[in-house]
Design a protein around this nucleic acid. Structure first.
Length: 489
RNA sequence: GCCCCCAUCGUCUAGUGGCCUAGGACAUCGCCCUUUCAAGGCGACGGCGGGGAUUCGAAUUCCCCUGGGGGCACCA
C-alpha cells in the first residue's frame, strides 16, 4: 500500500466527542502505520450550526491526544482549502459537470409535494425515494423556469443496478439502487449536500482510504455512484462500529462525560484515553492491554478492528488512567495535580507538593481526585468522632506521641525528606519497643492523632509532608484528649 | 415500514473447522502482602442468543428466527 492518504472530517458543531476521537485515532493509526498522510477537513457546510470556536477546540483536543494532522485548515497543504465552506467553486464545477453529462437534473418540486410522496411510500411499505417527476423536464424547460426566478435543486440521477464495495472491516457490502432515490446534491439555498461534497473533497484531496463510523455505510452507495459519474477513482472504505452507552443505546450526554475536553478537565491523561479508545473494538491479538501511541501505530491492523459495537466502560478507562498515573515521576505528577489542588484551595510549596504527590499517587484514578486525598496534608484534623477518639486510647499511645514529638523537636526543618521521615518513624518504633509497647498497636493511634482519620497515606509521607509545626500541634492536641479520657476512666 | 450492519463472560476482547472441558483484561468476590486505605501478587465467579444444515468434528461455514444498532432529509 503506497501513498496512503486518509482524512478525519468533523463538523464544527460541537466539541470533540469521544466517538469522533476514536475515528480520528483509527485514521491516525492507519495513516502512520502505513507511513501515509492524515488530513483534517472541516465539514462546516451547515452554516447555521457550525462555529469557528468549535473548530479551534476540536483541533486543540486532537493535539492534546497527539493526533495532529499533516494537512488541514490550521497547517495548510497542497489540496486545500480544507474547510468545506471555502470549497464552493469546486462543488459548483462538479455540479455543472454532472448536469452536462446527464448525471444530474434540476428539480422544482415543492417541499409539500415531497413530504406527501414520502408519506405515501412509507404507508405502502416502500423505501421513500423521489419519483423522478422533474427528470422528464428538458434542459431548456428547466433553464427557462430558473430564469423566471423559480427555485430549483439539483438531483443526482441514480443509475440502475447494484453497488458493491469491499469494506476493510466488514468485507463485501451490496446495495440495490432500487432503494436509493435521486438525491439532492445542490440545495435551493445554494448549499451542497453532504454526500456530494464529501465525494468532491475526498477525490480532490486524493484520499485513498475513508475510515469512518458505520453510520455512514448506507451513504457509501450514494458516494460510490457519484465517483462513477464523475469519472473518479473511488477510495477504499473502512467502517468501524459506533460506541454505545451502558444501556446499549448510542453514547450521549445522559451516559456522563462524552467529550474529550471533559475527560481532560477531569484529569485523565491523553495516553490513557488513546489507549482505551484503541482497545475499544481493537486488540493487538495478544494479551497486551497497555500500549503507547507508538506501539499502537506499529501494531495497528484494520482487519483486526471488531465489527460489533462497543459499550463505553468508564471502569476500564479509570484502570488505565491509574496505571499511567502510577508511572509518573513525583515531580511530573506534582505539576499535573497542581491546578486541581489550587482550585480546591489547597496550596503547597513545591517540595511539599512532591511529597504529597508521591503519597497519594497509588490512590489516584484521575488528577481531579487529588484534592480529596491531599486534604489530610492541609487541614487540621477534626477529632470529634467518638470512634476515632477511642482509637487514640491505646495502651502506650501517649508514649508513642511523646516520642514522636521529641524526635521532631530535636530537628529544625519544617519538612523532611522521605528517608528522614522513615528514620524518625523507625526511631519512634524502636523507642516503643524498648518500653515494651508493640509496634503495631501504636500506628493506628498515631495516624488518627495526625490526620483525624483511620485511613490515608503511609505514615512516613505524613511525617515528611505535613510540616513539623503542624505535626507537633496535632500531637499535643491528641495528648490533651488522651489526658481527658484518662481522667474520665 | 423498507434497506444495511452486528451478535463469545456484566463490560472490552482472543478465537478464521480439531490446539477450546473457550484464553486475557476491567468490574465483582476471596486470600496474601501490609502500621490503615490504596497499590501490588494470587485465586474464584462468570460466556459462545435460539433453531436447523454442512462435516468424522462447529464458537468458528451456510440458512432461518430473535435481539441490538445504523440509515431511509433541501443535517452532517
Amino acid at each position: 500500500m503506497t501513498d496512503v492518504r486518509v482524512r478525519f472530517a468533523p463538523s464544527p458543531t460541537g466539541t470533540l466527542h469521544i466517538g469522533s476521537a476514536r475515528t480520528a485515532l483509527y485514521n491516525h493509526l492507519f495513516a502512520r502505520h502505513h507511513g501515509g498522510t492524515l488530513v483534517l477537513r472541516v465539514e462546516d457546510t451547515d452554516l447555521k450550526r457550525s462555529r469557528r470556536e468549535y473548530e479551534l477546540s476540536i483541533v486543540r483536543d486532537l493535539h492534546w491526544l497527539g493526533l495532529q494532522a499533516d494537512e488541514g485548515p490550521d497547517v495548510g497543504g497542497p489540496y486545500g482549502p480544507y474547510r468545506q465552506s471555502e470549497r464552493a467553486p469546486l462543488y459548483q464545477a462538479g455540479v455543472e459537470k454532472l448536469l452536462e453529462s446527464g448525471h444530474a437534473y434540476h428539480c422544482f418540486c415543492t417541499q409539500e409535494r415531497l413530504d406527501g410522496l414520502k408519506a405515501q411510500q412509507l404507508a405502502a411499505g416502500l423505501m421513500p425515494t423521489y419519483d423522478r417527476l422533474c427528470r422528464e423536464l428538458t434542459a431548456e424547460a428547466a433553464k427557462e423556469r430558473i430564469a423566471s426566478g423559480e427555485e430549483a435543486t439539483v438531483r443526482f440521477f441514480v443509475p440502475q443496478g447494484d453497488v458493491t464495495f469491499d469494506d476493510l472491516i466488514h468485507g463485501p457490502i451490496t446495495f440495490s439502487s432500487d432503494v436509493i432515490g435521486d438525491f439532492i446534491i445542490h440545495r435551493t439555498d445554494g448549499g451542497f449536500a453532504y454526500n456530494y461534497a464529501v465525494v468532491i473533497d475526498d477525490a480532490g484531496m486524493h484520499v485513498t482510504h475513508v475510515v469512518r463510523g458505520e453510520d455512514h455505510i448506507s451513504n457509501t452507495a450514494r458516494q460510490l455512484m457519484l465517483y462513477e459519474a464523475l469519472g473518479e477513482e473511488a477510495p477504499h472504505y473502512a467502517h468501524h462500529s459506533l460506541i454505545h452507552g451502558a444501556d446499549g443505546g448510542k453514547l450521549s450526554k445522559r451516559h456522563g462525560a462524552t467529550s474529550i475536553g471533559e475527560f481532560r478537565d477531569m484529569g485523565y491523561l491523553p495516553s490513557a484515553v488513546v489507549n482505551y479508545l484503541a482497545l475499544l473494538s481493537w486488540s493487538p491479538g495478544d494479551d497486551r492491554e497497555k500500549l503507547t501511541l507508538e506501539e499502537l501505530v506499529s501494531e495497528f491492523d484494520m482487519a483486526r478492528v471488531s465489527k460489533s459495537a462497543a459499550i463505553f466502560d468508564l471502569d476500564k478507562l479509570n484502570w488505565l488512567n491509574g496505571l499511567y498515573i502510577r508511572e509518573l515521576a513525583a515531580e511530573e505528577l506534582s505539576e499535573y495535580i497542581r491546578p486541581y489542588l489550587h482550585e480546591a484551595g489547597l496550596e503547597f510549596d513545591e517540595g511539599q507538593r512532591e511529597i504529597v504527590s508521591a503519597a497519594i499517587q497509588p490512590k489516584l484514578v484521575t488528577f481531579g481526585d487529588a484534592p480529596i486525598h491531599a486534604q489530610v496534608f492541609a487541614d487540621e484534623p477534626i477529632l470529634t468522632a467518638s470512634s476515632h477518639l477511642e482509637a487514640l486510647d491505646e495502651p502506650g499511645a501517649d508514649i508513642a506521641f511523646a516520642l514522636l514529638a521529641e524526635a521532631l523537636e530535636a530537628r529544625d526543618s519544617e519538612y523532611f525528606a522521605l528517608e528522614q521521615a522513615r528514620m524518625i518513624l523507625a526511631q519512634v518504633g524502636d523507642g516503643c519497643r524498648e518500653r515494651g509497647i508493640k509496634g503495631k498497636a501504636i500506628f493506628k493511634p498515631l495516624r488518627v492523632a495526625l490526620t483525624g482519620c483511620d485511613h490515608g497515606p503511609e505514615l512516613f509521607y505524613l511525617i515528611a509532608g505535613l510540616g513539623r509545626s503542624r505535626l507537633l500541634a496535632r500531637l499535643h492536641t491528641a495528648l490533651g484528649y488522651l489526658a481527658q479520657l484518662g481522667g474520665r476512666s
